[in-house]
Amino acid sequence: MTDQTQAPDPQTYLQQWGHEPAVELLKRMLLIRAFEEKAEELYALGKLHGTMHLSIGQEASAVGASFALKRGDYLLNHHRGHGHCLAWGSDVDLMMAEFLGKATGYCRGRGGSMHIANIEANNLGANGIVGGGIPIAVGVGLSIKMRQTDQVVIVIFGDGAANEGAFHESLNMASIWDLPIIFYCENNQYAMSMPVRRAINIEHISQRACSYGIPGVTVDGNDLFAVYQAVKDAAERARAGRGPTLVEAVTYRWRGHSKSDRQAYRKREEVKAWQKKDPIRRYAQALALDDQELENLRAQARERIEQALAFAESSPEPEVSTILEGIYA
């Protein structure tokens, strides 16, 4: 286990990536933020059927991790998954349509906010069960190994999932078989209302990697560069046949767990303190963008979300006559 306390130097990465690709990452983060804000607004307007889990404040974790991987790699993620899905390059129109339960959505309106997948892009889907995707990652890793491709799978879960038995079974199996899996824990400090400091009696979730004989690393999840480097290292290790890594990205959930959460378990000051560590603003500063440039990009992202919403709202509802489709192959 290494606690990566030393923040990476942004300039090294920016030179390596080039200006345009670096700005693209900012745009992705802004798109996620705009999507989530619109989701919240639609809920307030009573336009949504179900609940949702917003990832505002966790954008660098999603975008940095995704950028460290290659096309053809696999993604499994969790209920707070809009950000990962957008970071993976998903079509925001189809995502918004799914969010609104429309027939044109990624899952034809059957999955909704918690179950967006894009199988064609090897996005194997978000999971509504805490820790539910982790054992599945073992199977994906096994399949990659048996098919002898150079793919990896990243499975994203929260701090809450690290206390499920499935987490432990899966890390162990991945370790003994050297599977190409990145176990990516977004520690956003709370499993619903349970603070991680009360739920886990060790300093870092990544320490648990020791028990399974694999590397564990904790990074600042609001630092896109740190996230990128940790996931890149884990992916290289996996591709080289050296097995899985547990990466813990420490971040913070700005909003409540879901829409019914009144957040009685935490103080306003705590939230405000984390909002000062806004991953988007921080990355924009590294890019040396001034406020006006950032606001212009923010406006563009919002405009794109409006277009997606227009697409979704004008899309048809699923036909009731198709209700039983897709249960069996």
């Binding site: 194997l124 073992v138 399949s143 048996m146 098919r147 499935a166 079974e169 899966s170 199996m173 003994i176």
Partner: peptide, 28 residues
């Protein structure tokens, strides 16, 4: 042993391994 895979005592893991492999083209 690569096709007749002995596992630890991890029944959730066995089921998950089947699901993940099946999702990505195998027939476990």
């Amino acid at each position: 042993p690569d096709r007749i895979i002995d596992t630890p005592i991890s029944e959730a893991g066995i089921a998950g391994a089947c699901i993940g492999a099946a999702l990505t083209g195998m027939r476990p």
